[in-house]
Amino acid sequence: MNGIKQKPQLRDILDRYPVLVQVAINVAVSAGSLLLCATLTPLRLPGLELLGVGVDWPLIWVVSWSVGRPWWVAIFGGVVAGLLQDGMTEFWPSHVWGLALVALLTARIHQRATTTAWVMIPLTTFVLVAVSETTMAAQFAYLYGRDAGDVWALHQKVTLCSAILSSLWSPVVSWPLGRWWRMMESLGNR
């Protein structure tokens, strides 16, 4: 084209493969990124920790996953991520409720995967961390018999630290995943 040889883009390379291979790669990237997010939750490094509170990687993944997807697909991602996090901590109280709610809200707020939606992800994450942590705190205080005063005092600290850290770190997960899923969408098999 115009005598200039263009470097082949990842999209063009993928386009040459059959649809089933594309789907398989997409599933591997989506599932792999979620597993990585769940696996890294026990990690505390300088910058990944504030007053002993770490980054909520599964929540960032769920927010990224839910942008521009139908609500039931979004919730599905939230449930899967919640089950993984339950496995990493304790089964009850479950993280499934909070993450499913986060997924539903993200899908409602960002119904289309526009550039604005992706730019807004840190802000969305900041707000939705509060939703997710409140769901956990409510379960602890009212279903699992912990002292409500202690739980809500901890809730304040946990929510603020986690919201700040998670929103700052959210682009690390959401930017590459967002680009990947938009590319898959343009290939017709998101």
């Binding site: 597993l35 696996t39 890294l40 026990p42 449930v79 899967v80 993984l84 496995g87 089964f91």
Partner: peptide
């Protein structure tokens, strides 16, 4: 099929107390 597989696998991971994820974490770190 993918949805059922994902849900099944996630449940399996949960029931096994995320054993292989923790092992993977150890290997990664």
């Amino acid at each position: 099929v993918l949805a059922v597989a994902a849900l099944g696998l996630a449940l399996g991971v949960r029931q096994s107390r995320a054993g292989f994820l923790v092992e993977a974490y150890r290997a990664l770190t």
